[in-house]
Simulated scan of single mutants.
Amino acid sequence: MPESPPAGVVRCQWCSSDPVYQHYHDTEWGVPEYDAQKLFEKLLLDGFQAGLSWITILKKRDRYREVYRGFDPRFMADQDDDVLQALLQDPGIIRNRLKVYGARQNARAWLQLGQETDPGKWLWQFVGGQPKVNHFQSFAEVPAITREAENMSRALRKAGFTFVGPTICYAFMQATGMVMDHTADCFRYAELS
């Protein structure tokens, strides 16, 4: 992982001055991730973001990792309604009923998918198994949805997932380096393209 750059280095326009956000941008966003467990975590985190800012999720990520035991899909799939009701009282996570219950549903769908295929490879198929490197000059050029994200969204929904619309799927693709959308003026662009 690269070290965070000194002050004054140019980052993607969406990255605020918040140190948590900058660290995420500088070390994680757009870096190809192939580990299935980490992909599962990031897919769920992107779903939790729906309607919220990403920094909100980043600041709650550690608590999510605690309550979901490192995003263990078996643990999550086995949670009963009483456990989920208790989670809805936890201020350390997003206390949205649909998202909390959706996380259990997504864990169950993930386990089912894992019985049929390697979920990590399955997700990467939507970009042909390797990162798609974009060469956007400005943030205005970066799309919110692509055909690949629409295809992923349809396939995930068919597999039983929730909170996996095309915008969420594209954000997930960006976060996991399936697509590299650092803009050309960003210091990470040269390192990842």
Rank of each mutant, 00 (worst) to 15 (best):
G114K: 04
G70H: 06
D81C: 09
F71L: 01
A103R: 08
A50R: 01
A184E: 15
T117D: 15
Q174C: 08
T56H: 10
K59T: 02
D81A: 15
P166M: 05
D62K: 13
G129E: 07
Q112T: 11
H135M: 06
S138T: 12
S138D: 12
R154T: 09
A109P: 00
G102R: 05
D72W: 06
R188V: 05
L39I: 01
L43N: 00
D118S: 10
D62C: 03
P19R: 09
A86D: 11
A36G: 09
W54I: 00
F172A: 01
R65T: 01
L52P: 05
D181G: 06
E116M: 15
P19L: 09
R95S: 08
D72H: 07
L58A: 04
K42Y: 15
A109C: 01
R74M: 12
A190E: 13
S16Q: 10
K99G: 09
L98E: 11
S193R: 13
S53Y: 03
Q85N: 13
G177P: 06
L43T: 01
A36I: 00
P6F: 08
R61D: 07
Q174P: 02
E141Q: 13
I168K: 11
V31K: 14
Y24H: 04
T27A: 07
L45G: 00
R154E: 12
I57C: 08
I57V: 15
D78T: 11
F187T: 05
W14S: 10
A190P: 08
W29G: 01
A7M: 04
F71Y: 03
D90F: 13
K132Y: 13
C186V: 04
F139W: 14
W110D: 06
E41T: 03
D90R: 09
R69V: 06
C169H: 07
A109N: 02
A36S: 12
Q112G: 07
L87A: 08
D18E: 11
H25L: 10
W14L: 10
T146S: 05
A36T: 05
P6N: 14
A190K: 13
D118T: 00
I94V: 13
A86E: 12
F136V: 06
L123R: 00
R74K: 12
S53L: 02
S138Y: 12
A144V: 14
Q125L: 00
Y64D: 01
Y21S: 11
L52H: 09
D90L: 07
W29K: 06
M76Y: 00
C12H: 04
G30Q: 04
C15G: 08
F172K: 05
I168V: 12
M76C: 06
Y34L: 09
Q130R: 14
V142M: 03
D185N: 12
L39D: 00
D46F: 10
A190T: 01
T27F: 11
W29P: 02
N134M: 13
T167S: 14
K158W: 15
G120F: 05
K60V: 03
M1C: 12
G128P: 01
K132I: 13
W14I: 09
G30V: 02
F163V: 01
G165P: 02
Q125R: 12
Q89T: 01
F48I: 09
T117S: 12
R97W: 11
V142P: 04
K99A: 05
